[in-house]
Amino acid sequence: MNAIVEAKRLTKSYGSFTAVNDVSFTIEANKIYGLLGRNGAGKTTIMHLITAQLFASGGELLVFGEEPFENNKVLKQTCFIKESQKYPDTFRVKDVLETAAILFPNWDAGFAERLVADFNLPLKRRVKKLSRGMLSSVGIIIGLASRAPLTIFDEPYLGLDAVARNIFYERLMEDYSEHPRTVILSTHLIDEVSRLLEHVIVIDGGKIMLDEEADSLRGRAYTVSGPVAKIESYMAGKQVIHQESLGGFKSVTLFERLGVTEQKQAEALGLQFAPVTIQQLIVYLTNRGPEQKGVLR
């Protein structure tokens, strides 16, 4: 196992507010990670900490086995694309890309050029005058063409239309298979990216809620529906993360693996199954009241 990022009891607090609370996780080499969670969950803070743009209040954080702060060996291998990236007012798209080409050692100019064409980006226009979507594509081009061994995208496609987002996914996958690297992708559009993700980390309230392989996560929960009485008896003793009823019918989402015994039991009761997408699962998990937010088994 080759750990690219190792966080141990990482904490970041602002006065009395704790944005990241005692978080430990490991990011392994050459995988695509999804860092998911609601707004204000602490995702962006974690990504800023990994790139030493923010300073941790406590805990330990190693990137490529070293502390990232003022460490060129780490930073030169890292590219962090964030939605809030600032660009100098006077810079044109061309200036930004040329500067990125100078600063990232693995920059592929040909690839950047193709991406500019893909996204229809006007090279001579000032970055300040770009639309929100175009601004996002500038970040995406830097993130892809820099080919950094650790590439982090924080909400990379604000304002991008579905076509452009698809271009991003396609180019990312193509380039990733040719030049494997570690990618951390943070986004709210979980359904769209779930097929790309190999590992999912869910953050909620500054804490890690889930840290699992995407494949295993897909079988982690399921929904059953049927008459209220039967459902009630079936769900007893199981971990319910969501429920809704309509008339005499009830449907519950259970955070359980569907084993053979349960399946037989449910079939005997005449209940219906449905799979739960990663997006639904995360919505249910992060949308629960505080009293329900126990540790997940």
Binding site: Q53, N71, C79, F80, Q85, K86, Y87, L103, F104
Partner: peptide
């Protein structure tokens, strides 16, 4: 902010 965003220490 721009330079730090491009991994400059």
């Amino acid at each position: 902010a721009f330079a730090l965003g491009l991994s400059v220490r």
